[in-house]
């Protein structure tokens, strides 16, 4: 690894004379520890989301970072296919605003296969969902519940890997409105989302258990 890349360990610290003691925060890396590839300009390219447990995962992570740089160069030179692939990577890395993503999508939509556009649209939908959730905040996200539920049933349907916030909005709305079937469906959705995005985390059974308890109470009150 050290032969292929520069190994840099950033340490958060308030020690006197320690430079860049808040670098992690500046780079908007929230996890502890956080692992990310940066370029020579210090730009974060990709973050490692899964807990890597072996060389193979790190190696894949490295190849992904190198691909990011290749696509970025090709996209800058005007290659539309590269632009589409790079947009997909940036969407996965949550590096774009919705407005920027839509602008790039518009520019390339006629030059890339329809399947590619569909894949991009799904990721853009995820970005739209997360921006709407952010705008509402935790206290009011239940207001998005009915529309998110309709989206899930009738489309445009997000992928299974849509963030947990999508399901929290539906759960909180369904609980308030005592919509038992919708609540039960959303627990399943949340379970799949966790599976996709986080694997099998230790906190999942407790979280899901709490929702199953609520479901039980909703059924009893009916």
């Amino acid at each position: 690894m050290g032969e292929d890349y520069v190994l840099f360990c950033s340490i958060d610290s308030k020690a006197a004379g320690w430079k860049h003691g808040e670098l992690r925060k500046q780079k908007k890396l929230t996890g502890l520890p956080s692992i990310a590839f940066l370029d020579g300009e210090g730009r974060v390219l990709i973050r490692l989301r899964d807990r890597a447990t072996g060389w193979r995962q790190f190696s894949t992570f490295g190849r992904k970072a190198e691909r990011y740089v290749r696509l970025r160069s090709a996209a800058a030179e005007g290659d539309k296919i590269a632009k589409a692939r790079f947009l997909h990577m940036q969407l996965n890395e949550r590096q774009l605003t919705l407005a920027t993503a839509l602008e790039i999508r518009k520019e390339i939509a006629d030059s890339v296969p329809q399947r590619t556009v569909e894949n991009l649209d799904r990721e853009i939908l995820h970005l739209r969902i997360s921006e709407e959730l952010r705008a509402k905040g935790q206290k009011r996200r239940h207001e998005l519940g009915p529309r998110f539920y309709r989206m899930w049933k009738k489309g445009p349907k997000p992928g299974e890997w849509v963030g947990r916030g999508f399901w929290f909005a539906i759960l909180e709305w369904a609980e308030r409105e005592k919509k038992i079937d919708e609540f039960a469906e959303a627990i399943e959705g949340l379970r799949r989302s966790i599976r996709w995005n986080d694997g099998d985390p230790a906190w999942a059974p407790k979280l899901l258990g709490r929702y199953h308890e609520k479901l039980k109470k909703l059924r009893e009150r009916k």
């Binding site: 520069v6 958060d12 520890p33 692992i35 940066l38 490295g62």
Partner: peptide, 17 residues
């Protein structure tokens, strides 16, 4: 060093706390 070697930086971000 990354610029000199024309390579990427593998960054591990941790804390003292």
């Amino acid at each position: 060093l990354a610029k000199k070697r024309k390579t990427l930086i593998f960054g591990y971000f941790t804390t003292t706390g």
